[in-house]
Each structure stands twice: as structure tokens, then as C-alpha cells.
Design a protein around this nucleic acid. Structure first.
Lengths: 276, 276
DNA sequence: CGGCTCATTGACGCCTTTCAAATAAGGTGG
DNA sequence: CCACCTTATTTGAAAGGCGTCAATGAGCCG
């Protein structure tokens, strides 16, 4: 039952990596180790936002300076990619082995039914973890597809959860990751109309980019309109029309896939305006 | 860091309780202890379905016969209720302390916005665990409301996760609980039309009742039409009309809140018929 | 330059919502 | 036990939103 303590020492390092991956938004913790497996680049490195969860990272002993022992982390946590847009990271039905943390690029998760109809279930930006829904079934229930050139960090779940047994902070972090994923799904249940759904989508992306230290106002859509539409349960034409309407109203400025949120506050108001 | 091993012995019992709660569908594991905190009654006790997850229960040492030590389980895992319909189990904004496993009755989780509009996020039947989405934010993001007379099992999350650190099976079980919740949310993203959503809802309830050993064909709706409608993003009138149409087609027989699924297979076909 | 995918725009139709009202069900007090 | 009130459910008719079909235009790679 409890006879696999061997990998624990090295696994602890993996734990640190996981915590880093899950919290890319924290300022780089005095990290200069080159080619570290799972540390996400923070472009506008100024993003030293105070994050209540950093406490966990430090509790795990990372904050001191984790750079020394990062060499053997690669035994468990491995860089993969870059994948090109359209390439599969994992496929539905494949046995579940790894979680993936996005280092750069974007991933979509897609479910396809017997008739070949596809449903986009989510988009995953750098710093986010993919694959949590596969833990219980033991197989990936979805396809993981790169939308653009994407680099990932592979986290073998067995090893990670084994570490979590030794390191309370890692376990907590995992629970939070899971819990957050549930919360995100639930918060998406709110939007009634098409306007609201699209506005919520843009604001969500904005917030998630901001979290990474990128501009909340200006960003690039990695996915085609059809994916956005499918994700929001809309027709691609409707997305186009709504974006045009948003543009006319001065809410956004979108040329191709370049998004400028001109009035995020009014977008947020639009969300509240829903049904009286 | 690892200086709180004191409660581990008693906590281990709590672990067993959690596993039981989470897997009420397993045949009662030679359980005769009266007033055990967290063992769910299995009406048609014949429900000794083979369940791959039972392996975890046994791995934790429950299967032998957990009945002996169940007395002190109550220190961590506590019976609460019965709550009357309409009573709050927990409220949005309240600090998160406990998960709740439904022993009997039904719970709904509801989110309310500033304007007072409510959104039903889920229904929870006996054997299911509520509150997972509160782990990350640290406060309940939703209200938990009893729909009928409901008895619960309170699981203090700190204690449970502490046990999970010692008992790998418990940790695995928790990960699976989280993961399953994500999967359930994602699978709900599928239905395009109102017909499909309602059919999926009925089939989902059916499957979950069957899981508990109850009839998949005949069951009782604990919630009013308005809750179903809200949950499915429909108007109550639409739900009524669709149910009427289902009845005309001979798919179901619904009198008030008593549901008879007459042709589940054809309901399932209806799901696939969606968009060509 | 040609072919391709993606994005946009318009017209029409169906499905769902909204508004309005009747009926049924459940619970309380006399 | 019955009358009554409140809430829940059902049904109808009309308005609006979103999807579908169709066609044009823009961007990209071979």
C-alpha cells in the first residue's frame, strides 16, 4: 500500500515545479536557472502581484531559492513541444498519464461525438493546467489541441500525487487547481443572451491575460471565430455580428484577431444588464 | 510543516466515512453499525454493482469491516440535519469549512448576483458531495439550499485533507471527486436545443438515481419546474410545454413531480438527433 | 496567380421567450 | 373537515432573437 517512498526526494522538486506552473503570475522567485522545466516566462516581469497562494509556494520551500536542485526535476517534469497549431497534445480515449501546464501558446480542449460533431470545452492560456477532468475516468475525455505554436510542461500525475502525499502544500495546491476549474465552469453558467456570453468571454480572456502580466486591454485571439462560436454555443455568423455591434458601440476594436478592449467597464455593465 | 500528526488516528476513520459517502452505490460493506455517521442507506440493497472505485475503499482498509471503529468517526464527520425544504445548508460568502455529503433528500446550489437574479448551478442527490468549488476561493461561492427534508454528512475539509496526506487512497478519492465534478460540468455543455437539454437532464437524474440503487425509470423530482428551467437556461413555461410534448410522444409520463421514463432509449436518441 | 480557409454581411424562418390568464395543488386557520 | 389563500403548473398568442442559407470579401500559403 505505502511502499513507494523511493521517488519522494526527487519528487519534491517536481512539486515545486507544479506550484510554479500553477502560479506563473507570481514574480519569478529569484529564478535564474536556465532551461528550468516548468518556470513560465513572465514577459512584463513587473507582475509581482501579491497573491495569497504564493504562501503555498513558499511553504513548500521553493521561495528560498529553488534554482539549485532544479536539474533533476526533469526526471518527472518534462518540457514538451513546441507543438504547431492543430497538433494534438492528447486525444480523447487515450489513457490518462499526465497533466499539462501551458508555458506558451494556447490549447483548446474539444469533445467529439459519434456523429463527428465537435464541442469546444475550453481554452487554456499560459500558466494554466490542462487535463484535470481526466483523473477520474482514467482516460482523457477530450482532445487537447494546440491553437498556435505551444510549449508545455508535462506533469506525470502519479508522481505528482505521490509528492502531494508528502507535501501538504502541494496537495493543497492541487485541490485548489481542481476547485478553481469547477468554479470557472460554474461561473460560465451565468450569461443569458449571446451578447452577455461574448462579453463575458472577452472579459475572461482579458482577466486571464492580465493575470499573466500581459495587457488586459490589448491581446491576440489564438482561435478562429468558429471555435469561439462553438465554445459559446453560438453560430460563427452571430459572433461576427456581435463583434461588429460591439465595435459600432465603441466597446471594442477588433481587426482580425487583434483585440482592443476600449471600454471594459461598459462591457461589464452589459453583463449586468441581462434580464431585468 | 508536518507537525500535526495527532489527529491522524481518528482521522483515518473519517477517511473511511468519506469514501463511503462518495460511493454510496457500492453494496453496503457488511455494515450493521447503527447510527454510523456517514453510511448512506441503499434502499434496494441489491445494488452490489461492480465499481472500479471500490478498490479504493478497500485499499483504505474499510472493506474488511469498518463497523468496529465507526463510533469515533463522529469527532470529525458529523451528521447534520434534517433540513427542511428551503433551508440553507451554507450561504454564499460564508467562509469555507466543510464539504457536505448528501445522505437523503436533495440540495441545490444557487448563485445570486447583485440585482438579485438567481442561477441554479446544480442539484445534488444522496451519495453526492457538495462544496468542492469552495476550496479554492476559501468561501462558498454559492448558496446550498435543501429542496426537501434532507440529511447530510459534514466533512471538515481541513481534517479530511490532512487524512488524505497519510492515506493515499483518500487523496486519490478526493482527486477523483474533484475531477468527476469537472467532467460533469463539461458534459453538460453538449446540448444544443431545449429538447436536448431537458432530455439530458432527465437521463442524468435517471442515471444518478440508478447509481444509488433506485429505479432509473421511476423517480420523484424534488425541485419545482422553475428550478429546472433556471438550471437549464429555459423559461418555466418552456419546460412545461416540452414535458407535455414528451408525454404526447410517449417518451415519459409525468404527473406533477412523479416521473416515469417510458422510453429512455428514444430519449437518448433525441440527444443524438441534435444538429446534423 | 490560384486555391484555400477564415471572416463578414444580408434575408428569412424557426424556436424560445414574454405576457396574460386559467387551473391545480398544497398548507393554514377556522 | 372545509374554506380559503398562496404557490406551482399548464396553456395560448404574439414578439424577438439566433440559426441557417447564401454570397461576398479578405488573408495566407503553395
Amino acid at each position: 500500500m505505502a511502499g513507494m517512498r523511493g521517488a519522494a526526494t526527487v519528487s519534491r522538486r517536481a512539486a515545486e515545479a507544479l506550484l510554479e506552473c500553477a502560479h506563473a503570475r507570481n514574480g519569478p522567485p529569484a529564478m535564474s536557472a536556465k532551461s528550468s522545466a516548468c518556470v513560465l516566462p513572465v514577459p512584463g516581469a513587473a507582475g509581482v502581484v501579491t497573491c495569497e497562494r504564493c504562501a503555498l509556494v513558499r511553504a513548500c520551500g521553493v521561495a528560498g531559492n529553488g534554482s539549485v536542485a532544479f536539474a533533476d526535476v526533469h526526471q518527472l517534469v518534462e518540457d514538451v513541444g513546441p507543438f504547431r497549431g492543430g497538433q494534438y497534445i492528447f486525444r480523447a480515449g487515450e489513457p490518462f498519464r499526465n497533466l499539462y501546464a501551458v508555458k506558451s501558446g494556447t490549447i483548446k480542449t474539444v469533445q467529439t461525438d459519434a456523429e463527428g460533431r465537435a464541442q469546444v470545452l475550453g481554452f487554456h492560456l499560459p500558466g494554466e493546467v490542462v487535463g484535470l477532468e481526466a483523473v477520474d475516468p482514467g482516460v482523457y475525455p477530450v482532445d487537447g489541441v494546440a491553437l498556435e505554436s505551444t510549449r508545455l510542461c508535462r506533469l506525470p500525475f502519479d508522481a505528482v500525487s505521490h509528492v502531494a502525499q508528502r507535501e501538504a502544500a502541494v496537495q493543497q495546491q492541487l485541490f485548489r487547481l481542481f476547485s478553481r476549474a469547477i468554479g470557472q465552469h460554474e461561473s460560465r453558467s451565468w450569461d443569458s443572451g449571446a451578447d452577455q456570453r461574448l462579453a463575458a468571454f472577452l472579459l475572461d480572456l482579458s482577466a486571464r491575460y492580465a493575470q499573466r502580466g500581459l495587457s488586459p486591454q490589448v491581446f491576440h485571439l489564438a482561435m478562429p471565430r468558429s471555435d469561439i462560436a462553438n465554445f459559446l454555443h453560438l453560430a460563427p455568423e452571430t459572433v461576427s455580428r456581435l463583434l461588429a455591434r460591439f465595435r459600432e458601440r465603441g466597446l471594442v476594436d477588433i481587426i482580425g484577431r487583434e483585440v482592443h478592449l476600449l471600454a471594459p467597464a461598459r462591457l461589464r455593465m452589459l453583463l449586468a444588464e441581462a434580464a431585468a
